[in-house]
Design a binder for these strands. Structure first.
Length: 474
RNA sequence: GUCCCCAUCGUCUAGAGGCCUAGGACGUCGCCCUUUCAAGGCGAGAACACGGGUUCGAAUCCCGUUGGGGAUACCA
């Protein structure tokens, strides 16, 4: 029995990744199987190494380590898809040769047009298969001319296509509802669909345990397995973690970065316990249990299918439980391993050194580096000279979104990006930076803003910015 | 729009036809403990979305309605 998680290194380590990892790992461990980590970095534009490293670190922090993966090796490697492109190209070619796939020369404009038509006609599929049956010689001619193209799968034109979901039973849809899926992009990289099917097969994955959002594309995957003549694995689709408003959990409405939870002082065992309670329960309904106990009792029949809301209140209660049962020595150890250790103080102390007269002053002057800032009101945030709450909200929203995209969270890049926002919004640096300072620290007087933000870290800054946004919301 | 998934207290959930006048937990409220605040203890309020079937009997099975969610990308 072999399972995997396949995160895409395109951002901050996501709580949903940990959730799916936990259930994969628990299932594998319960049955003496293997848990594989595969990096799905087929999106050249968005994938980056820093993100990959952060995902490794966060999963390890939670104790969700893997038997096989890019950094630990294994007999089915490489485990990074960008290192497997030759394999995908070969397999795509194999499908073209066997008549299961074909080159498609549609331009972005053509595709846009088709989407508009499909919308108007109320169909789910957009691509009209116009290149599916191009004469052989024309295909050859275009290819020889070096025309840009993708490789698409020839989906069956009629009939039903389905699979058995481990939690829901049989699910099937009309094959005609499914587009001729792109297998190979024009940059030669595979899409998720091709890469995931090829790798799951080659890596001998027996159970694909992933999020519910994949249900609609599973028929595409089944069709692909068929085209290759392979036996598909078992599929299990986990419910989606939700925001308070029931939408799919997102950074706009909830802290989703695992880094946020670590920096905020949640204990990994509490986090794992809490994730284990999302959609799942122990046979005796215990609220508090270790990963080991979860494995011991693990069974997918104990899953509940409606998407659970990620409730910080309950996580906080659980975390308190774990915190309280530590010995004093253990607690001190946790604290020093967290932000009270030399590592963090080394970064922090120089920033406030010039601003104190006694060592004791450090406590008051560094509070927001360690814990949450004081609660804010709109008056605290809106600059006096601006005086317009809605304008402040708009500007802070824009800055927050721009900051979301900053991957190199350090002093200089942060300043550059924020100065640019001054240009864009027409706000004076004094006003814009002042509002940012208040949002991130809760104070009007702090060490230089961007150094401060660097030390506090992206995850917590983002969370604080979103809290400030909520305060300003109309 | 179209396709797919889901549906028990505000939230996480137990419940696999009679054990359910629906149980536990978080949160809320009240009381106790206490120099304070927590923690802890005790208690209260709070849900089977609706309508049809099936059955002697339905929160549990079936159908429909409604509601929510997801998918409809050369992102995963």
């Amino acid at each position: 029995m072999r399972v995997r998680i396949a995160p895409s290194p395109t951002g901050d380590p996501h709580v949903g990744t940990a959730y799916i990892a936990l259930f994969n790992k628990a299932f594998a461990e319960k049955h003496g199987g293997r848990f594989v980590l595969r990096i799905e970095d087929t999106d050249q534009k968005r994938s980056n190494e820093a993100s990959e490293k952060a995902i490794f670190a966060s999963l390890r922090w939670l104790g969700l380590d893997w038997h096989e993966g890019p950094d630990v090796g294994g007999e089915y490697g490489p485990y990074r898809q960008s290192e497997r492109t030759a394999i995908y190209r070969e397999h795509a070619q194999q499908l073209v040769d066997s008549g299961h796939a074909y080159p498609c020369f549609a331009t972005a404009e053509e595709l846009e047009e088709m989407r508009a038509t499909a919308q108007a006609e109320g169909r789910r599929t957009a691509y009209d298969r116009r290149y599916r049956d191009l004469p052989r010689d024309e295909v050859a001619r275009r290819l020889a001319a070096g025309e840009e193209h993708v490789i698409r799968l020839k989906m069956p034109l009629e009939g039903r296509i389905g699979f058995v979901d481990g939690l829901r039973g049989p699910i099937e849809i009309d094959a005609a509802e499914v587009d001729d899926q792109i297998l190979l992009k024009s940059d030669g990289f595979p899409t998720y669909h091709l890469a995931n099917v090829v790798d799951d097969h080659l890596m001998r994955i027996t159970h694909v345990i992933r999020a519910e959002e994949w249900i609609p594309s599973t028929p595409k995957h089944v069709a692909l397995y068929d085209a290759f003549g392979w036996e598909p694995p078992a599929f299990v689709h986990m419910p989606l973690l939700r925001n308070k408003d029931k939408s799919k959990i997102s950074k706009r409405k909830n802290p989703v970065s695992l880094e946020y939870y670590r920096a905020s002082g949640y204990l990994p065992e509490a986090m794992v316990n809490f994730l284990g309670r999302m959609g799942w329960s122990m046979p005796d309904e215990s609220e508090k249990f270790t990963y080991g106990q979860m494995v011991e009792h693990f069974d997918f029949s104990r899953m509940s299918l409606s998407g659970p809301i990620f409730d910080l209140d309950k996580l906080g209660w659980l975390n308190g439980l774990y915190l309280r049962e530590l010995t004093h020595a253990e607690l001190v150890e946790r604290l020093t391993g967290w932000l009270f250790g030399a590592d963090y103080l080394t970064r922090l102390a120089p920033l406030v050194q010039e601003r104190v007269t006694t060592l004791g002053d450090f406590v008051g002057k560094t509070a927001y580096f360690l814990g949450p800032p004081r609660a804010l009101t709109a008056d605290d945030l809106v600059p006096k000279k601006v005086g317009d709450k809605d304008a402040a909200h708009r500007v802070l929203k824009d800055v927050t979104e721009v900051l979301d995209g900053v991957t190199d969270w350090r002093n200089e890049p942060l300043e550059a990006v924020c100065r640019e926002q001054c240009e864009v919004t027409g706000w004076k640096a004094r006003d814009l930076f002042g509002m940012l300072r208040t949002a991130v620290t809760g104070e009007t007087a702090t060490p230089p803003l961007f150094e401060t933000m660097e030390v506090i870290g992206k995850a917590r800054c983002q969370a604080r910015l979103r809290e400030a946004l909520a305060v300003l919301a109309p």
